[in-house]
Design a binder for these strands. Structure first.
Lengths: 344, 344
DNA sequence: CTCCGGGGTGAAAACGTTTTGCTACCGTAC
DNA sequence: GTACGGTAGCAAAACGTTTTCACCCCGGAG
């Protein structure tokens, strides 16, 4: 038992196989297979025998062999930039919950946003015979390529918005109406000079769009000097906020931040200026991360429905994998509800 | 191409197989296999031909078939209570990073701490032919059972501390010296009446042990009235803190909380009493979650090295999977460094 | 000329399932 | 007595690799 240690410790010495079951039950492998799958009628008596032998031997079907024959692995892959990022962790959980019921397992790949790794993982996923993949990689660089590599793999993209790959569904949060709600809320609270701290420069994002709409609807001008850029981080938010406050007579009375970290940085800045949130300046964020309830004051923000995104991605995938749906690529956008706390 | 839609959309119509490559290259499958694996010498010329055909056809080996034959899947499983919990997400990432280099993928299972699901997933993992598994399930209920199900699967447990399963390694954080460092720090800062807010009742944890040691070493008495219980949550911490403060003349001047959430709740309570942290009461937590830097004041805490835990778990697993190590079960405990911020 | 040794390659048997024809049997209807 | 329909079950061919033998050929040694 410990002689042959050269290459590896023989991971599974002698597992019971279907053939052994068949032999002991005095039937053919075919029959055993059928009592397991129920794909063909087997006499009650025989079933009973087979089942009892299965129990006795503790037989468990070998999924690898099964996959080889059926060309289905009952496994879906999710490729994310970084599972460590709560958003993706929650998304992954939603996906897992969605597909678990149908017997699918979840295979995770972290790309760190690196397109090469994205490609490599996509190939890996294909090679491993996953039945479906959800691409939550930010860049949306690589999509299940239509090239020689893998044509028909059911796929759904998350958030990427980009050009629609046929046979790849898309699910995304409704950033625009989310930010619209946030800014409307600020206006309702009496704010008139509302700034926005967005992501890095190549802007024109959906979140900015909601901001513009809300302003327009309420007859407020959009003033370029009130639109500044952060980098999604806390220090970035702090810097941007200081910039907004640098001209004392032209200060905003509220600011909409394109994500929570930025908002938290903005709050830091406000406090450094010995001003109060929300009395002097109201602040709202976007995402509703855990930290939003920790910060002081608790952050009013827009919820980015990570779990639901993962879950519907899973459902979309399921329908394609089951063959229930086979049409053009679908696009579902999920609502981003405003959650009002104390910062605005 | 769209006739037969009944069961499923033919996930991979016609992938190139090794046999096709062989045929086109005018060699036997054996040879192709060998140029791929390098397990046998193949003449330069032949190699060149084969490789070019492979490129031309875009051939990719089918991993399922390979796994069936070799009985290795190049996949490790990690079963955690909930990937949504940052600790486990980070741990998973550490594991993934560790095994990725060796070509292993990562399969994730969320048990929600439910022992039945734990069992089910373990079975699933076995059936899928994973090459190794790390059990981070809190309860440590199910271990890779020595029963008929799966004997030789390399496994490592995380944190569970429980009885040592042969051939299952164990990696855990050094809770005791971590909390010892935390409490020593408080003492060094001048605290004399140091309370502890632990987890739920059946206590006697390693974290309490460090607390007792530090007290003893410094000639401080351990007073039962200063030892109270939370439930790992923020509200729980708040309640416990209020309890500690209920007898004004016997209040602590510092408190060590068995996790960060509890500490944050404790800070809430202190603020509600119009006292200051750390001036009136110093507070230190345990875990060093993201929120620790968000809360005000930033939390002094002990880092729970999730990433390193995952990473070493991965390394332990690798050594067993490669057959490099085949001995008794190992146990590695990782340091939990104190990170001093402003709350103590 | 024969024998040997070794470089280079192939045929075929695994691996453990699922699935496609068949066959064998039994009873009933003609 | 033959035909027929339905029920139960089996043999064997997949699925796409890896791996074990065995083969062939060629050059050099005897």
């Amino acid at each position: 038992m410990s002689d042959k240690r050269s290459p590896a410790p023989a991971p599974d010495e002698n597992r019971v196989t279907l053939v052994q079951v068949a032999k002991l039950a005095g039937v053919s492998p075919t029959t055993v297979s059928h009592v397991l799958s129920g794909k063909r009628w087997v006499a009650e008596a025989t079933q009973e025998t087979v089942r009892s032998v299965i129990r006795e031997l503790g037989y468990r079907p070998n999924n690898v062999a099964r996959s080889l024959r059926t060309r289905r692995s009952r496994m879906v892959a999710v490729v994310v930039p970084d599972i460590t990022n709560t958003f993706y962790a929650v998304l992954t959980r939603g996906l897992a919950d969605a597909v678990d019921g149908a017997g699918y397992g979840t295979y995770v790949c972290n790309t760190d946003g690196n397109p090469e790794r994205e490609d490599a993982f996509l190939a890996d996923v294909l090679d491993r015979g996953a039945d479906g993949v959800v691409m939550a990689a930010g860049r949306t660089a690589a999509q299940p390529r239509t090239g020689p590599a893998g044509p028909g793999l059911p796929a759904v993209r998350v958030g990427g918005s980009r050009d629609d790959e046929p046979h790849a569904d898309l699910v995304m949060p409704d950033d625009t109406v989310g930010s619209h709600a946030a800014v409307s809320h600020l206006i309702r609270r009496g704010a008139r000079r509302i700034a926005i701290i967005e992501g890095p420069l190549p802007a024109g994002s959906a979140r900015e769009e909601g901001y513009r709409q809300a302003l327009a609807e309420n007859g407020l001008p959009v003033e370029p000097e009130l639109m500044v850029h952060g980098d999604w981080t806390r220090p970035g938010g702090r810097r941007a906020m200081h910039l907004l406050m640098s001209a004392p007579e032209r200060r905003p009375d509220a600011v909409f931040c394109a994500n929570d970290l930025t908002a938290i940085g903005a709050i830091d800045a406000v406090h450094e200026l010995r001003l109060r949130v929300p009395d002097d300046i109201a602040i709202v964020g976007f995402d509703d991360v855990d930290a939003a309830t920790i910060v002081n004051p608790p952050l009013t923000t827009v919820r980015n429905p990570a779990y639901d995104i993962g879950r519907t991605a899973g459902e979309l995938l399921l329908s394609r994998m089951a063959g229930t749906y086979d049409g053009e690529s679908r696009k579902v956008v999920l609502p981003c509800p405003l959650v009002v706390r104390e910062s605005a």
